[in-house]
Nucleic acid binder design. Sequence first.
DNA 1: AATTTTTATGGGAACGTTCCCGGGAAGGTT
DNA 2: AACCTTCCCGGGAACGTTCCCATAAAAATT
Lengths: 340, 340
Amino acid sequence: MSRSAITIIEIARMLGLSKSTVSRALAGHRDVNEDTRKKVLELAQKLDYQPNVVALHLRQQRTRTLGVIIPETMNRFFAKAIGGMQQVASQAGYNVIICQSNESLATEKMNVRTLLSNRVDGLIVSVSGETDRYDHFDLVSKKNIPIVFFDRVAESIPSSKVISNNYEISKEATLHLIKQGCKRIAVMAGPQYLYNSRNRLRGYIDAIHESGLECKEKYILQTDFKLKRMDELVRYLVNMKEKPDAIFAINDMAALEMIHVLKNMGYRIPEDIAVMGFNNEPICKFVDPPLTSIDHPADEMGRSAAALLINHLETGNATVVERCIKSQLIIRGSTHRIKK
Amino acid sequence: MSRSAITIIEIARMLGLSKSTVSRALAGHRDVNEDTRKKVLELAQKLDYQPNVVALHLRQQRTRTLGVIIPETMNRFFAKAIGGMQQVASQAGYNVIICQSNESLATEKMNVRTLLSNRVDGLIVSVSGETDRYDHFDLVSKKNIPIVFFDRVAESIPSSKVISNNYEISKEATLHLIKQGCKRIAVMAGPQYLYNSRNRLRGYIDAIHESGLECKEKYILQTDFKLKRMDELVRYLVNMKEKPDAIFAINDMAALEMIHVLKNMGYRIPEDIAVMGFNNEPICKFVDPPLTSIDHPADEMGRSAAALLINHLETGNATVVERCIKSQLIIRGSTHRIKK
DNA sequence: AATTTTTATGGGAACGTTCCCGGGAAGGTT
DNA sequence: AACCTTCCCGGGAACGTTCCCATAAAAATT
């Protein structure tokens, strides 16, 4: 902050007015003479006056700022969601301050503290891949600061949530694989204390059962979101007695890396092994074979979360809403084994 | 902000002390009795006291906040850079507030105003693809708020900059293509009012000249960063009289999309046409053929920019620094035409 | 002409913090 | 006993804004 910033008082002094009058003129209040208003506005313009929102925030006891905690900005899903939030927020005159937990519970806790002492008006949160308890949000609720969870939600907390239909879409994707003739479908299942991952796995399991197939433990691979040594995982899979004929990956990058490793081993995709991605990143269209994936309207989820939160803030209405944004299965070559 | 937030005054009241003493105790000042300090600390802990940084900022005339303006968070390069900034910033006790210009000059101007009235202590900026003039930064300089530009810099503004060696690396990449036997190298050149794009093109041109090849206008394709209709571009290229035998793309996504289109047309990569990417996204390793690209240490650039800015802020030293972070050519299959 | 109403303005508290300054009490020195 | 330090602590201004209240002048009403 520059020490010579011009304030409302400065303007008042220059015009021989009181700060109250200047404040009113600037705020578009009615109780002020048109001539003086014009003079004030002109001078403010000329001096490039910009209201000190810090002072404003202290006075108003609100910051018009939304705090966002997400696992990673590098993740395109979250990057896109942030875009949506910022769009809605700035339209409504709110700022957004973003923290990354880096998939770590400890950092997530720190993020909460940071945002709280920065006096954000509300929180939008997607929990980290390590978050198996939610007591660090107690403080937030205690201070009556509204939270909206999105995608990776904290079920037990009574607050609004924006989710996608993980269960249904995961089931649909699995059924698609089965319809293509796949009988031994491996799935990369995320941390099971996450609501999301649980639902995704449930969808997979139900699809298998409903199709009369046997659901085998060994095809369910426990993984997290920080993937490494994908080649080992692939080797493990292809060395099985009953080698899988399809893999439902945890995300597109994992899927593409697997395809790469499998191709190098001489397997054909999808003839030998079909591969299903998750997230539908733009690259899916341009790889060989094009990757079947699941598209989430991340931007809409972000918009929705921000709109929900702002609505809570503006109306004071604290009723909990749960909004579900539908994902979509995008079928491409990597799973297309049967010509219709 | 909750209306019942506990303040320093509240704590003072409860302990029968003055706010001054409580403030000192909390701040770790020396002029306070050990017993009272302990009492204060305990109560603060018990009440989950969190200092109101808004009040602090008003008082201190600084917000310990860095304003960042980048073209797009969806762009991995910038996302990574942001990660680096946040790391350095949070380590130094600074917050970061991020604005996207969405490659639009108008939004960039708005972003500057927003950050300014939010009283950020300093700015880190990478200009939009439309930014061909810099007068919207005059206000910032006039208010003595330091700016650090990174990657897409505003040359004419006398402020610190973090850049990569675009010229050298672009030249090296082109020379690599020439060494592989390519003689008709098409290049996607970004907006020429951008310092970056100009240097990149210069590197390309110098490499061609130094190798005794002829630099033909028609191989230089004017593009911007919002790419669409890549298939048209490819069709234009392959329909030339002297069809290019190499393409130096503006970024990896463009390169991959081109490869996709070219393969569908029956061309072999790199035998018929070599393709060079830019940015070295993780996916480069996993596509077929693996994509040669140029790796930028985006995180280091972000860290560097933040460190530079914070240094300016803390020391008050306004001497302009220009730091160059070296990029690296990563050779892979998409350009590898000659077996050594 | 006396009154009420309207219009325009100024004064000052409040938001929560820091920090300068003053001063009392305790202890040490001459 | 008088003085000087040292140690703690409280009072109050300041940061820039809004907003409630008071008030003077002007206009309108009686």
